[in-house]
Design a protein around this nucleic acid. Structure first.
Lengths: 338, 338
DNA sequence: CAGCTGACGTTGTACGTATAACTTCCTTGG
DNA sequence: CCAAGGAAGTTATACGTACAACGTCAGCTG
């Protein structure tokens, strides 16, 4: 019945129920067993319901010294992969009464003197992708618990790491193509300095060298369809025998490779095989559908949040890489003897 | 130099600088002109820097009675469109020292008694897509300022609405196809009950009826590639003269239409034209590239946040729909006389 | 019947900040 | 030389919550 524009507080509820504010806090905080009678508790709950009481989170956080909020730092949400990571993390967080906020995209910082001004909402911990390193340096300095996604376990001193089994993914792709009979490869690599891409390059090069004794040709491209297309086209036009398979660091790059191949009059997979990485919606949208490595981004986010929660509880976070899966579709076939 | 695990407070800074806590608050809050000498101010800033002081947001929010945080309610972040809306909203928010939190995805609610438990982090306002109506009913009840995205201006009592000019987009698509000579249309519609889709259907039907005197065939499909494919395939197989153009409610549905057409042995655009809506990355990934309506999702998010900020300031939010643009690519051509 | 034990609460306080209201000292004009 | 006012701070308080510490009273035991 409180008029005004101000929201009801626990004291308003107390007054309505004819008890003290402390009693309200006890009842609503589920700590009333043996301290408040069932009848009184019900009266309090009733009053809270009628007034539409919602606890003031700021006050609670201040009192408890925690925010039940984690910060997720990713390069861009418009990348479906990271959107899924967020959803996984948010799901686990919600189950534990936690929230997840996102680091604002770099371009959005604007004139604020402190880029953290908005994201700095009281935080208990941070989950960060290794692909967002520039933002990361600012965070380290805060003494917040940190979980790193897809980053070098050796190089992330102190921080907990949660990784997909990228090495295994690239191993499977390479084996798949080698088994089909391919011997000349083009690696269309992301031009981003991140562990997750380094691992791809290392594994691919090592395995191909071991099995064929040859090198892998490499072209670096920004992760955009257009950028990938020109990089791939240049590489495929280069002198020497043409590669029979293009191994791309992610699905978006593969789309660029498709366009490059088409532009050069090459048919996929008849003239050239193409593989991706991630298994985004894109992979099944294009023709032929893309052979790629499925990364369970949601699970990745879930594991990241689970690890952070463990750290916050003082427990040891679970170990072990997240398995990935090769998905063979229509973009790979045995090389055609030309 | 403060050891311990607790972060320094403004009082610690005050002690280090040899002033009162109030002075620290004034200096760091930029309200010290004429109240504190430049020298003292500098001393305070220096101390704050050395201690690595970060104001406690919970305390500030409690004191100010505001959180400088907005809630964005969208159906799914893995939909690139909404990810972009978020980024736009977050950019504007950051410029004003605001943060944006997301409503946790519906499946993530789990056992929490109050689905708002986590997202309810102290909020100043809400921006909600009309496509997330089930979540919305819970919010209304909170007396928070509400900005609705893409919802019926007439039906959103009290709430401010920010809309893309969907009607104009559909008008342009229809005109484009009519001008090319198409007369028989299939409308591949989203099976979601939302204003933004109703508008598409109404405008398409009205314009086609006006210009050709005929009805538009309609097929409803869930917004997934597979769902759209089967719905489109069924509709294209139906008896009677086959439509020469498929108008889809969004780009993802268009991908399904592509697959259906291919499966039926129809070439795009030679045998059948296809159009989308949104202009996601998908649109230029597929072959042929998709004729669609470009919606500036980021601008949409920016406008939404701008409107909310205006409401919070007690100003009248700007009016007017956000213009959209027809992007003609390779998926449309004059109908082939069969 | 003194003393004790629960059951059922209440009182009081602290979390860290922003700001209104007050003090103190110095300068300056009349 | 005194009143007035500005500069440069300080003191005190409230925001709403959670919980430790403290009553109070009935019933029971020895």
């Amino acid at each position: 019945m409180a008029r005004g524009s101000t929201r009801p507080t626990s004291r308003d509820v107390a007054q309505a129920a004819g008890v003290s504010q402390a009693a309200v806090s006890l009842v609503l905080g589920d700590k009333w067993r043996g301290r408040v009678s069932e009848a009184t508790a019900e009266r309090v709950r009733q009053a809270a319901r009628e007034l539409g009481y919602r606890p003031n989170l700021a006050a609670r956080n201040l009192r408890l010294g925690q925010a039940r909020t984690a910060l997720l730092v990713v390069p861009a949400l418009t990348n479906e992969f990271f959107a899924a990571v967020y959803e996984g993390a948010a799901r686990i967080a919600a189950k534990h009464g936690f929230g997840v906020v996102l680091y604002p995209s770099p371009e959005g910082i604007g004139p604020a003197r402190d880029p953290f001004a908005s994201a700095r909402a009281a935080l208990d911990g941070v989950i960060a992708s290794s692909m967002a390193s520039e933002a990361l340096t600012e965070i380290r300095g805060d003494d917040l618990p940190l979980v790193m996604l897809d980053s070098d376990p050796a190089g992330s001193l102190g921080a907990t790491t949660v990784n997909l089994d990228i090495t295994d993914g690239m191993r499977q792709i390479t084996e798949h193509l080698l088994t089909l009979g391919h011997r000349r490869f083009l690696h269309l690599a992301a031009d981003i300095d991140s562990w997750t891409f380094d691992v791809r390059a290392r594994e691919l090069a090592a395995r191909v060298a071991e099995r064929t004794g040859t090198d892998v040709r490499t072209a670096k491209a920004p992760i955009t369809i257009e950028g990938a297309r020109t990089a791939a086209e240049d590489a495929l036009r280069a002198p020497g025998p043409r590669p029979t398979a293009v191994i791309c660091d992610d699905d978006k790059l593969a789309v660029g490779a498709y366009k490059a191949a088409r532009h050069l009059g090459l048919r996929i997979p008849h003239d050239i095989s193409v593989t991706g990485f991630d298994d985004l919606a894109l992979a099944t949208a294009i023709e032929p559908e893309l052979t790629t490595v499925r990364l369970d981004a949601e699970l990745f986010g879930e594991r990241g949040m689970t690890a952070l929660l463990a750290v916050l509880e003082g427990e040891t976070p679970p170990e072990g890489n997240i398995p990935v899966e090769l998905v063979v579709r229509g973009s790979t076939a045995p090389p055609h003897p030309s």
